[in-house]
Amino acid sequence: MIELLAERFNYIIVIILMMTGLYAVVATGNLVKRLVGLSLFQTSVFLLYITIGKVSGGQPPILPEYSESYGGSNAGETAMAAASPAAEAAEGAVSQGEALQNTAEAIYSNPLPHVLILTAIVVGVATLAVGLALVVRIRETYGTIEDEALNQADYAAENARRSA
């Protein structure tokens, strides 16, 4: 049991952080602080994805600049350009094989969660801005951003409308 949890410490920490954010969302009545809690929750979800993509002993998924297959090295290329197409194809195959070998030597962490979370962070701040804009408009209309005061203002308006 202890070993099972020790091997999965990342999930435990992520769950605790997530629940911290959820607590802030549920327990506070202040709308700005609720959005802060929501962004805590969001960051802990990002951490969940990235820790799943981690491979032990891995490197960041940036490959070394292996020579030919980038078409960067010029001397060999121009020499090959004069040669027959068949020879060129053979050269290409060799360099591709080298490239594959190069990537097989090192262990890389999984790049897919990185891509998903990278875009999610920027989308997250854009949607956070929409939420904050709504809060600002609510404050301008009601004069408060505490949810109980907002409810009372709504009930009062409703009662006034019914009695009229």
Binding site: I52, G53, V55, P61, I62, L63, P64, E65, Y66, S69, Y70, G71, Q96, A99, L100, N102, T103, A104, Y108, N110, P111, L112, P113, H114, V115, L118
Partner: peptide, 24 residues
């Protein structure tokens, strides 16, 4: 399951398909 299939395929095929070092 998250690390075994498509994510690692990107690393092996990026040099041949796209030819840029940063897989992300």
């Amino acid at each position: 399951p998250a690390n075994a299939y498509v994510g690692m395929d990107y690393i092996t095929s990026t040099p041949n398909d796209i030819a840029i070092p940063n897989v992300v």
